[in-house]
Simulated scan of single mutants.
Amino acid sequence: MASMRRRKQAKDEQLTASLLDDYDALEAEDVGPAVQQQQQPARAKAPGLSSSAIILHPGEFNLQAFVASILAWWQRMFGACFGQIFSYATHLWPVPQRGPELSLLQAERLQQLRDKVAERFDIASPSHQDSLRRLWNLAFSGEPCTALKTPRWKDMGWQGEDPATDFRGAGLYGLDNLIYLAEVHPDTFRRLMDKSEGTRATWEYPFAVAGLNLTWALSELLELHAPTGAAAAAAAASSSSDSASGQGPRPPRGATGRAFLKLLAESDVAFEELYCAAYCLLDATWLEMRASYMEFNAVMKRVKGEVERALASRPTDMAQLRQRLLAAVPGAAAGWD
């Protein structure tokens, strides 16, 4: 579009480094605080155990819980003398950590989100192709999508002629969130895609790929990804226990994910609305930092920190979360529709 006031968006022929990492290959050094907390070993302390209690909880007798509570009491009394012995004993009889209780609605929506995050993008799928065409029609109204491989995709902020190569580990949900932004907040979508505000760098972040990156970053903060490594083994054991007891999906362990649960009970599009507000924050942060393409990761790190702080403030609803999030950077709320 000739009238678009935009700078060059980074393309493969100019910059070979991909903005969106191959998340399947990432190691633990770059995970967020919520995931790091999830990967820490659980302490062998019974939840709700007071200094004088021996029985963990009333109800059906549980030998493991009973022995663990006896050991915990005995260790408080004589741990100074027999610390190593009791440390070994409590290792043999660990007490399961209890997460926050989920309502049926929270459990259902949390599982739906995790299923969405887990679905890979498959260019061979007709429904996935339809989603790409749907995004095209929203971005280039009145211009038919005649091919799924064309240089025109770069004008939307994909890094090459074939958008399928940009998904990597981001999955179909990254595309769904771009579509949600375009359909529910069309003015915001147009402003962000066209880069129509502010003094821009010569090399801008590519809009569509940055959106995929943002979906990944937020779902990581909220513990929506399937765990890997040692965390996967612990989650598998927890899932087996939950299945046996009839419980639903494992709740988030980090404070950020737990704070999000309340918003999830209030709205079935809580993640999508958080995504849209976070994208406005990303663009405003980009302008404030006067960033260029190679500084995108620094911008994203700051955005993730602001999301954590906004959720830590325990907003009562999505409107309050959006207000607190967009207040983090001057100008972030400008143009929100």
Rank of each mutant, 00 (worst) to 15 (best):
residue 51 S to M: 02
residue 39 Q to D: 09
residue 51 S to P: 00
residue 70 I to S: 03
residue 37 Q to N: 15
residue 32 G to H: 09
residue 70 I to N: 06
residue 57 H to T: 14
residue 47 P to T: 05
residue 43 R to W: 01
residue 76 R to F: 00
residue 42 A to C: 08
residue 70 I to H: 05
residue 43 R to G: 02
residue 44 A to D: 08
residue 41 P to H: 06
residue 57 H to S: 14
residue 53 A to S: 10
residue 54 I to M: 04
residue 32 G to P: 08
residue 74 W to P: 00
residue 55 I to Y: 04
residue 64 Q to P: 04
residue 43 R to I: 02
residue 67 V to R: 11
residue 43 R to L: 05
residue 66 F to C: 10
residue 50 S to E: 01
residue 51 S to Q: 02
residue 51 S to D: 01
residue 49 L to I: 06
residue 47 P to C: 05
residue 44 A to K: 07
residue 57 H to A: 15
residue 57 H to K: 15
residue 34 A to T: 14
residue 74 W to D: 04
residue 47 P to L: 06
residue 74 W to N: 06
residue 59 G to I: 12
residue 62 N to C: 13
residue 64 Q to R: 15
residue 49 L to K: 06
residue 41 P to D: 07
residue 40 Q to L: 13
residue 49 L to P: 00
residue 38 Q to Y: 08
residue 71 L to N: 02
residue 34 A to L: 10
residue 62 N to Y: 10
residue 56 L to K: 13
residue 69 S to R: 12
residue 71 L to C: 03
residue 53 A to Y: 00
residue 46 A to V: 14
residue 68 A to R: 14
residue 64 Q to C: 10
residue 62 N to E: 14
residue 72 A to G: 04
residue 72 A to M: 05
residue 51 S to V: 01
residue 33 P to F: 08
residue 67 V to I: 15
residue 64 Q to D: 12
residue 50 S to K: 03
residue 65 A to N: 13
residue 33 P to G: 14
residue 56 L to A: 15
residue 61 F to D: 08
residue 43 R to D: 02
residue 49 L to G: 00
residue 74 W to Y: 05
residue 68 A to S: 15
residue 48 G to V: 03
residue 62 N to L: 11
residue 59 G to E: 05
residue 37 Q to G: 14
residue 59 G to D: 07
residue 51 S to W: 00
residue 50 S to F: 00
residue 67 V to F: 07
residue 47 P to F: 03
residue 46 A to H: 11
residue 55 I to P: 01
residue 35 V to I: 15
residue 50 S to M: 01
residue 39 Q to R: 14
residue 56 L to S: 14
residue 45 K to M: 07
residue 49 L to R: 10
residue 33 P to T: 13
residue 55 I to L: 09
residue 39 Q to N: 11
residue 32 G to K: 09
residue 57 H to G: 12
residue 66 F to S: 12
residue 51 S to I: 00
residue 72 A to Q: 08
residue 49 L to S: 02
residue 36 Q to L: 14
residue 39 Q to L: 10
residue 68 A to M: 08
residue 38 Q to D: 09
residue 40 Q to I: 05
residue 40 Q to V: 08
residue 41 P to I: 03
residue 51 S to A: 04
residue 39 Q to S: 11
residue 48 G to N: 04
residue 38 Q to T: 07
residue 38 Q to N: 09
residue 59 G to L: 08
residue 68 A to E: 04
residue 68 A to D: 06
residue 34 A to G: 15
residue 69 S to F: 02
residue 57 H to I: 10
residue 50 S to L: 02
residue 52 S to I: 00
residue 54 I to P: 00
residue 44 A to R: 09
residue 71 L to V: 05
residue 66 F to D: 11
residue 49 L to C: 03
residue 75 Q to R: 01
residue 33 P to H: 12
residue 34 A to F: 06
residue 39 Q to C: 07
residue 55 I to R: 09
residue 40 Q to W: 08
residue 38 Q to K: 13
residue 33 P to R: 14
residue 72 A to N: 05
residue 51 S to R: 01
residue 60 E to R: 13
residue 69 S to C: 13
residue 61 F to H: 12
residue 48 G to P: 03
residue 49 L to V: 04
